[in-house]
């Protein structure tokens, strides 16, 4: 289980994240909603060691991971599907997956690669092709697969539906659900609240770096006005 408490992150004078509280639990998807610039990406980047925090704590199964290097954090079991997918465009699909498994053993790599290919047959078909030429949806699948290759138990996903056609959004989010169902803890940032709530277990709404609402996804689905109010409020104050 991943726990974020009282996290504060600053870019110079800009306070991007203040008092962030989050948890990610195995088998569950925690959905993080919030307006542009609310500090969602910053939070995820801080968790996986790409960004320094001012204060607060991030623990993985009780062990502090805040302040460790990204390469250390992956080895402890937190992998990231970054915003904009960021596949290694000039490299082949298979090389991207091998890089995902950089910290894993050979056996784990072979096994997981087979699983990934089974989950996303298109990646198997295109395995020796240059990954930059994949479609947006395919690249997202590759980014998922790459994160899975690391054998991490906790997977951070930053806006997996970004820039995808509506028809594909559903299938991508379905895959995310599948990943959680296989036992991983998923922390997912989404702009698409409606589609995100369909597959999430818990929801957290952030505004200007702070958590303004926290509850079950089911509750939010039943009472969409509630979330919308917080989101709208966030959007308003952001102006």
């Amino acid at each position: 289980m991943l726990e974020v408490t009282d996290l504060v992150v600053r870019y110079g004078p800009v306070q991007a994240v203040s008092d962030m509280r989050l948890t990610a639990t195995p088998g569950q998807i925690t959905l993080v909603l919030g307006a542009n610039g609310a500090g969602k990406t910053t939070t995820l980047r801080t968790i996986c060691g790409l960004q320094r925090a001012v204060s607060g704590s991030v623990t993985l199964n009780g062990q502090n991971i805040l302040g460790l290097s990204p390469s250390r954090i992956v080895r402890l079991g937190v992998a990231m599907v970054p915003e904009g997918r960021r596949v290694f465009a000039p490299l082949t699909v298979e090389d991207n997956l091998r890089l995902g498994g950089y910290t894993a053993s050979r056996q784990d790599n072979d096994r997981t690669m087979a699983e990934v290919y089974e989950m996303f047959p298109i990646l198997h078909e295109r395995r020796s092709g240059v990954s930059g030429l994949l479609s947006g949806g395919e690249q997202q699948m590759l980014a998922f697969g790459r994160a899975l290759m690391s054998q991490a138990e906790t997977i951070l996903m930053d806006e997996p539906s970004m820039g995808l056609a509506p028809a594909i959004v559903d299938s991508v989010l379905e895959s995310a659900r599948g990943i959680a169902d296989s036992g991983k803890a998923v922390l997912m940032v989404e702009q698409n609240a409606e589609a995100g709530l369909e597959i999430a277990n818990d929801v957290v709404v952030v505004s200007r770096g702070e958590v303004v609402y926290q509850g079950s996804a089911e509750g939010a689905r039943k009472n969409p006005e509630l979330v919308r109010a917080f989101l709208g409020d966030a959007a308003l104050t952001d102006d």
Binding site: S71, V74, P82, T103
Partner: peptide, 21 residues
């Protein structure tokens, strides 16, 4: 060698992959 090529493409994502730059 693969890790080095990845570093040449995107150092940050390489770090996420566990590559110690």
């Amino acid at each position: 060698g693969l890790a080095l090529r990845a570093l040449g493409v995107d150092p940050e994502v390489s770090a996420m992959m566990g590559i110690d730059r």
